[in-house]
């Protein structure tokens, strides 16, 4: 069990983003991860064509949080038929911004010596939670009061049996910080904060009933359109 132990941040398993049939034999699978404060795209490139592939480059369309490659795609050697390589591409969040649908959608173009190929991928919003996301308690209380009720969104997290310390630890490994814990009538209430790379703060109340395996998550944010993506990240973090 990982209870009480630092176990790293949640990283989605790689999925196929570009099937070989759509890219003249180039297959790309990948994931976007946050590791030690750095956001990176982790790619596996497979050459399923009959010819060598060279001259790789990558470009992103503008996107909701300004994600952009922070370096060139490093594929040093030609990729032979049937060869597969893993590549890590560091990302920055200071690229051009345009609101995407859904918000966490990223459109990517990859070129090689054969052609240019396009694909879309979805990344977990938790990669954008910064290490400096612990809000001061006084500021939290004032902000919680200040954000109007119509900006509050509520979600159920079902089938989760972790205790509140395990929950806090798992979330903190993903830069979701518990700043207060209260027990009221047998319910554990955790008050939490996180900050996105673009400066948006999200405040959370996680309510856990001892008798139930379902948690209630209430999120308050001045940009409430991010809330459903934050909920998705809570689910992924707590259930993995």
């Amino acid at each position: 069990s990982n209870v009480g132990m630092p176990c790293g941040s949640y990283v989605e398993p790689k999925t196929v983003w570009l099937p070989a049939v759509k890219a003249k034999g180039l297959e790309i699978s990948g994931t976007v991860a946050r590791r030690m404060g750095t956001i990176q795209m982790e790619l596996t490139l497979s050459n399923k064509a009959m010819q060598v592939m060279t001259d790789f480059a990558i470009q992103f369309n503008r996107n909701s949080f300004g994600l952009a490659p922070a370096a060139a795609l490093q594929v040093h050697t030609p990729l032979s038929p049937n060869q597969t390589i893993d590549v890590v591409l560091p990302l920055s969040t200071v690229g051009p911004v345009m609101k995407m649908e859904p918000l966490n959608n990223l459109q990517v173009a990859v070129k090689n010596n054969i052609d240019v190929f396009y694909f879309s991928c979805i990344y977990p919003i938790s990669i954008l939670f910064v290490e400096e996301g612990r809000m001061e308690r006084q500021v939290f209380l004032a902000t919680w009061k200040d954000i109007p009720n119509e900006n509050e969104a509520q979600f159920h997290i079902k089938d989760c049996r972790l205790n509140s310390d395990a929950v806090s630890n798992k979330l903190q490994n993903n830069n979701i910080f518990s700043i207060a814990k209260r027990n009221v009538d047998g319910q554990e209430m955790l008050y939490q904060s996180m900050r996105l790379t673009n400066g948006i703060w999200v405040l959370a109340e996680l309510r856990m009933q001892a008798s139930s395996s379902s948690y209630m998550l209430s999120l308050k944010c001045r940009a409430p359109e991010v809330s459903q993506f934050v909920f998705q990240s809570y689910e992924a973090i707590l259930k993995n």
Binding site: Q138, W144, R182, V184, M189
Partner: peptide, 20 residues
Amino acid sequence: EIDDGLDEAFSRLAESRSNP
């Protein structure tokens, strides 16, 4: 938790949320 004098405020918040 650090005793910053806000413990009571969080208790009030939690109670108001539990019993609106």
